[in-house]
Write a protein that binds this DNA or RNA. Structure first.
Lengths: 118, 118
DNA sequence: TCCTTAGTTCAAAAGTTATTGAACAATTGG
DNA sequence: CCAATTGTTCAATAACTTTTGAACTAAGGA
């Protein structure tokens, strides 16, 4: 049951901008960028919104081509589609993430995080 | 009767992204960028939307801090707030404009343009 | 097998944004 | 002064987006 993703050349600029123009989704992308390489599951974002609402926002990000969601057991592993975005809109993602970095007022992910020590 | 504009530090990233995530407004910004330095009046954009609707979209751009509108007689002179945007979100405007450049499918301004020769 | 965990789907409600036309204001040229 | 030009405001409507809760599916562990 792999979820539908647009191909790189189907990714649309206004749609990407509109999708990033929501504080919850921008916070998700910001957090994904800060953990780049590490695939995260939805539950990481539960302090941003309810489970149902997260499902909605993550679907928007996926359908816009901003993220990729892979099924892994009962989880979804979510990653940024950096290569595709960089190819399609060079510099855009970096400048958005850098700007989000400086933005106090964006919701933050994992403020009450518990690290499991080995 | 000067219209209200946010100061540079009041410009918000998600609001700017949301405002640019509309094809009509993105086309306006793209065209402003292509004529940078030249202040344009609203009528330049009449092939994108009705007069009333343009007024709405131009107000959104102004309120988000993307453009500046100055009253000049019965016209408004509209310019991109490039300095403020570059200071606040370095690289963002350039990457958006470069991406819009490559985007066939965005509405275009002035396709039936008549140049007045001196 | 049964229970739990992880996430989706659906339908409804709430909220927001875009579009429209008619009426208005302000400036300028005749 | 009058008329035309340029753009705004207002109220209504249409069209979307976001949020919600309840019901569901699918996988994994006991």
């Amino acid at each position: 049951m792999s979820l539908p993703h647009p191909t790189a050349d189907q990714i649309s600029l206004p749609i990407v901008l509109a999708v990033l123009g929501d504080p919850t989704r921008l916070a998700i992308v910001h957090y994904l960028a800060s953990k780049e390489g590490v695939p995260l599951n939805c539950s990481k974002f539960l302090d941003l919104a309810s489970k149902t609402n997260l499902s909605y926002h993550l679907a928007k990000l996926r359908e816009a081509g901003v993220t990729r969601s892979e099924a892994a057991g009962t989880s979804r592993l979510i990653t940024l589609r950096r290569d595709d975005l960089d190819k399609r809109f060079p510099g855009l993602l970096d400048s958005v993430i850098a700007a989000a970095e400086g933005d106090k007022g964006l919701p933050a992910v994992g403020t009450a995080e518990v690290e499991v020590s080995a």
